[in-house]
Design a binder for these strands. Structure first.
Lengths: 367, 367
DNA sequence: TCGCTGACTTGGATCGTTCAAGAGCAGCAA
DNA sequence: TTGCTGCTCTTGAACGATCCAAGTCAGCGA
């Protein structure tokens, strides 16, 4: 078997010192173009790659980013973090970083995981997900001077670190406006209990859109812990009421799925001919752009309550749920960009950067 | 800020040499218990962890395992790989390993990814997913002498490496037997086109169970590329036929979801009272064990075709689909166990180990 | 008292890389 | 010629751990 190609091998083959090879790789401007090309050719020929372990020993940079992989919670919404993880791996690779995973049951365990990971592998930074009020993680990392970016705003907490987030309010506002345009007047909001920043954020978009349209939101909202069953139960209460809403904006696809189940149950939509349903289902596989061209379909069947979810999960795609999609690829790229900025900026005085991305509505059958 | 704790720090603090500290960590039996405890106490007090980079330089072991994270394909079935990844991260942590991610669009790109990863980070091994006939990856890794385990049998290929898999045939057989017990006689199979090992495997379980029950499988199977719409279309064809099946065993939850949609559409099940539906949905949240106690529910409504899926995806849980669940946690643990065995065994002469795990049926509403 | 054995400890070399400092050389002005 | 500058490249040391071989010491028998 071919023995390992080290920087020494390359140096010998190219007839230069190891340092020159190192410079070709890390600081090309220090090397005369002629030499550089020659060394580079040898590098390519031998397939040399710098050993990260050795590099890390000297420079302290591991080019590793720690990310927590969460257990699939309800299995529906948890999925978006997996999709995010995939995008993040790709974005990281573009910047020559790798993702190392860790698990943690709660915030305290996660901080323990930081310590473990930092001591042994010294990742250059972390990407945190699922930030929430009173989150102890950012503070700990700031104290230790560990670079990191969060996917999620520092809800309520001090704004002392770089973050990327999706504007949930803009998402629910777009959903609400879509329903208004379709002729709905009493548009309800089915969300989560207050306190979790995300919950308030998504609610506020619905609220402001309602007011902007001159509609009265009073009594049109309910809050419940996430889940399909809970969504169905709540939707039943809301939609069955005499002056209840004719459409629902939901804080998650789980809730929306429950609500949509209820709608289908009561309107007997499934009693339509199999052929029609088959054709319809096939159409929903199209892209958001395709779907958007049919965006007024909700109005044409005003008798059926409309439902809009949040997150564009696979379930939503499967059952034809109109939903708000987060631009996860952009989020991932922004995370990497901000993290590398923090890494390069070091303890610089520049204030932490923020990126707030706008989600878009994916129109399917349910609204 | 506290400067880094190295093995030297510990040695000084404990009043011993660095080698003794190293021995306490890596070869405790070489150290007198008294000394060992004292040194261990200092290690704990200072929170010392051996630097992986330095360790790897000398010993060659990185304690890193490379795993590919796949793009969410159809979004329904792809999800099981994400769940597997989570379990794998946890199992790896138990054995003091970390998971590094990489992406690759196809097998060739994945082999390129191996080269990149090996050269820079030299992971100790890989866990491969989604093996298939004519898979070039195992051969490449074997040639290079890189340790690895696959989640998935070497379909058709030579049996020269360790693998872990789930007995798909046992799963579809259990599903079929469940339907037989519920009184069904004409049980159809809705699967994928032949050629992919997994497709044939799942089909064979249905086939053998049918024969074992003395039932004639002729004309009761269809094969189609995965997808909800395809499932609905195929189910319509099969179930609407005069002598068509009264129940369907499907190769995936995607197909099963389509089929179940069709069943609900034609039987008008959703026309039942909202209250009843709400109660029912709530019940389906229960565990497999709970669900199993109602396992004869299918028989009591013999008029409604039964549908069974495969993979126990979140969608299945959400819509109450009976399905075959893969024991992903066990798979992950077995992968780590086999991989460490390969690692320790080195180029030993012992034949590669295999683990074939049995899935179990999760009974919900659809059968 | 001496030497031997075995258990434990010690110093030094080493892994592959980068950092800091030095050396060679051409070009140019004095 | 001498000295200086700037560019290019080389040399030696260091990062933090492990491995190897040699060293120390207590305990023991003669």
């Amino acid at each position: 078997m071919p023995s390992k190609v080290t920087i020494r091998t390359v140096a010998r083959q190219a007839g230069v010192s190891v340092q020159t090879v190192s410079n070709v790789v890390n600081a090309p401007h220090l090397v005369r173009p002629e030499t550089r090309e020659h060394v580079q050719a040898v590098i390519d020929r031998l397939g040399y790659r710098a050993s990260q372990a050795a590099r890390q020993m000297r420079s302290g940079r591991s080019r590793l980013i720690g990310v927590r992989i969460e257990p699939a919670r309800d299995g529906i919404n948890g999925n978006i973090l997996d999709r995010f993880l995939h995008e993040l791996t790709e974005a990281a690779a573009q910047a020559e970083f790798r993702i190392v995973l860790y698990t943690a049951a709660d915030d305290v365990a996660e901080i323990q995981a930081y310590e473990d990971l930092l001591a042994a592998y010294s990742p250059d930074g972390f990407v945190l997900t699922s930030t929430h009020p009173d989150d102890p993680r950012p503070g700990w990392l700031l104290d230790k001077g560990v670079p990191f970016v969060t996917f999620g705003r520092p809800w309520g907490g001090p704004d002392r670190h770089a973050w990327v987030d999706v504007d949930g309010a803009a998402g629910t506002a777009a959903a609400t406006e879509h329903l208004v345009a379709a002729g709905h007047r009493r548009i309800g909001f089915l969300g989560w209990p207050e306190g979790a920043g995300v919950a308030d954020d998504r609610r506020s978009g619905w609220l402001s859109a309602m007011r902007a349209a001159g509609l009265d939101p009073t009594g049109l909202e309910r809050h419940v812990d996430d889940g399909v069953a809970a969504g169905e139960r709540m939707a039943a209460e809301m939609l069955a009421a005499p002056d209840g809403p004719t459409a629902l904006v939901c804080a998650s696809d789980s809730l929306a799925l429950g609500a949509w189940n209820y709608v289908l149950a009561t309107t007997g939509h499934y009693a339509s001919s199999p052929a029609a349903r088959t054709a319809r289902t096939a159409r929903t596989v199209g892209t958001a752009a395709n779907a958007r061209s049919r965006s007024t379909s909700g109005a044409s069947r005003a008798s059926r309550p409309a439902v809009i979810g949040f997150d564009d999960t696979p379930v939503a795609r499967a059952v034809g749920l109109t939903t708000v999609a987060q631009p996860l690829a952009e989020v991932a790229q922004a995370c990497i960009r901000l993290l590398t900025a923090v890494l390069d900026g070091g303890g610089g005085s520049s204030p932490p950067e923020h990126v707030l991305l706008t989600p878009h509505l994916v129109v399917r059958d349910s609204a």
